[in-house]
Each structure stands twice: as structure tokens, then as C-alpha cells.
Computed example of a mutant assay.
Amino acid sequence: MSRATPLACLVTTSVLALGLAAPAQAASSIDYAALGDSYSSGVGASGQSGSCLRSNNAYGPLWAAKNSPASFQFLACTGATTDDVRTGQVPTLSSGADLISLTVGGNDVGFTSTLITCWTTTDSGCVAKVNEAKAYAASTLGGKLDAVYAAIKAKAPGARVVVLSYPLIYASPATGCTLSTAKQAAINDGARVLDAKIQERAEAAGFVYSEVRDEFAGHEVCSSSAWINGVTLIPATNSYHPNNSGYASGYLPAFTGSAG
């Protein structure tokens, strides 16, 4: 009886392993839903419409257009807090959803009011406001996130849920910006604390956490190729949100790599 060589055994084992691996679910059979706030609705991109300021250039619609899922629910809405997602978006979520994406938490900690304060007060005033947001994230946000995640699991128990982070607004530090480096550092530090809490609670819920900072590195506000809008006047809501490139080259790859 001939004896198989080690190489032949390795090849055979590899082939068997490939043959026994569970095939990935085809996108055409996936029911996908995009939940969340303005970073999921597409604020900052072109083509926004309706009271929720949804844009087909947001990462959710971009993923759907590329992958042609069986169904797509675009439920994200500008200004949404954790309570808004839990009581307004989750109830309309399909119970058969296979894939869900989500950004939420920024409005809970006062994203807009913090940035306005940092633009209109001193360095110390900005730092104090950011510290308020960080304290809320530490004391209260975790419970709010847990409630949202539990509601999603109860409504669509079979779904793969991808929770995406927020990017850092500035490089470390950005030069040539109107805001001082102290304010930039404070804003970025607040974002890190927020993302850390989101990651902690998402992973505790058994969800997939996807960090977007790597994708946005080198494309922050004031960079030569910014994927995040600075202060905009028309419309003001676009301020500090991703532009078309930010959604297509930042958020979309971060989501696609975690969608399974």
C-alpha cells in the first residue's frame, strides 16, 4: 500500500476543509436595514431629501446598490438619539432582517451643541463642554445603548448587526484650521471616549463593532483631501459630517468588511 506524502495530505486536508466550510449567504437573499442617526442617513452628502435628510450617497444605500439585497429598509434619520432609534426605527424594522447597520450615540452626548460651544467660546469653555459629554458617556450612555441593542435583538433576532464608530474630526493636530489645537484635541478626545463606550456595549450585546478611523486617517477636516465637511453655512447641518467621499471611501469599506 502506498503512503501519502505530507504535501498530498496537506492538499487533501485543505480541499476537504474548503468543501466543508459553510458558504456565505448571497447578498441577493439578504434583507438589509440601515438604522441610526445623521451619519447613517447621509447628512453631509449630496442628494439629501425629506425630514430625515436621507441621501442615496450614504453608505447604506451605496452598499444596497452594489450588492442588490433581497430588500433594503432605509430607516436612519438625522438627529436620531438612542431613544429615537429604539422607539421610532426599531418598531418598523423587519423581523426577518438578516443584516443591520447602525450609528448612534453622538446626539445623546450633545454632538451639535458641543461643536457650537467649541466654535463660540474659549479653549477652557470647549474643554469643559467636551468633559460634560464624556461624563454623560461614562454614566448614562451605556444603558441607553444597551436598550437599543436589546430592542434590535428582540425584533430581528437572526440579524447580523454591525455597529459603526464615528471618525475623528481632526488630525492630531490639524494645521491651518481656525480652531486652536487645544480645541481640536478636546473634540477628538471626546470622540474616542464615545467610540470606546459604543464598542464596549456593542460587543457586550454580541454585535460586530466596526471602527472607521483607519479609513478616515489623513482625510479629516482641514486636510488636503478632506472626507469630512468643516463648518458649512448652506446647509449648516452638513457641518462636521462626511461628504460623498467620506461615505463611499470611509464608511462603505468599513461596513462592507464587517457585513459578513
Score class of each variant (00 low, 15 high):
residue 154 A to H: 04
residue 159 A to N: 02
residue 78 T to W: 15
residue 108 D to A: 09
residue 106 G to I: 08
residue 64 A to K: 03
residue 164 L to H: 09
residue 146 D to Y: 14
residue 112 T to L: 12
residue 90 V to W: 09
residue 65 A to W: 07
residue 174 A to R: 15
residue 71 S to V: 06
residue 155 K to T: 07
residue 64 A to E: 06
residue 117 T to E: 08
residue 170 Y to M: 06
residue 110 G to D: 10
residue 88 G to A: 03
residue 95 S to R: 14
residue 167 P to E: 02
residue 136 Y to P: 08
residue 67 N to I: 09
residue 126 C to M: 02
residue 136 Y to C: 01
residue 67 N to T: 11
residue 141 L to A: 05
residue 120 T to V: 12
residue 90 V to Q: 04
residue 171 A to C: 01
residue 166 Y to T: 06
residue 169 I to H: 09
residue 77 C to Q: 09
residue 142 G to K: 09
residue 96 G to A: 04
residue 122 T to M: 02
residue 122 T to Q: 03
residue 133 A to M: 11
residue 169 I to G: 10
residue 92 T to E: 13
residue 75 L to T: 03
residue 124 S to V: 12
residue 154 A to L: 04
residue 66 K to G: 14
residue 149 Y to C: 13
residue 172 S to C: 15
residue 177 C to N: 01
residue 86 R to H: 10
residue 85 V to I: 05
residue 82 T to Q: 06
residue 65 A to G: 13
residue 108 D to L: 10
residue 62 L to P: 08
residue 75 L to G: 05
residue 126 C to V: 06
residue 92 T to G: 12
residue 171 A to S: 10
residue 178 T to A: 13
residue 137 A to T: 13
residue 107 N to Q: 05
residue 140 T to G: 01
residue 177 C to F: 02
residue 66 K to F: 15
residue 86 R to W: 11
residue 154 A to F: 00
residue 114 T to M: 06
residue 122 T to W: 00
residue 143 G to E: 07
residue 62 L to A: 05
residue 124 S to H: 00
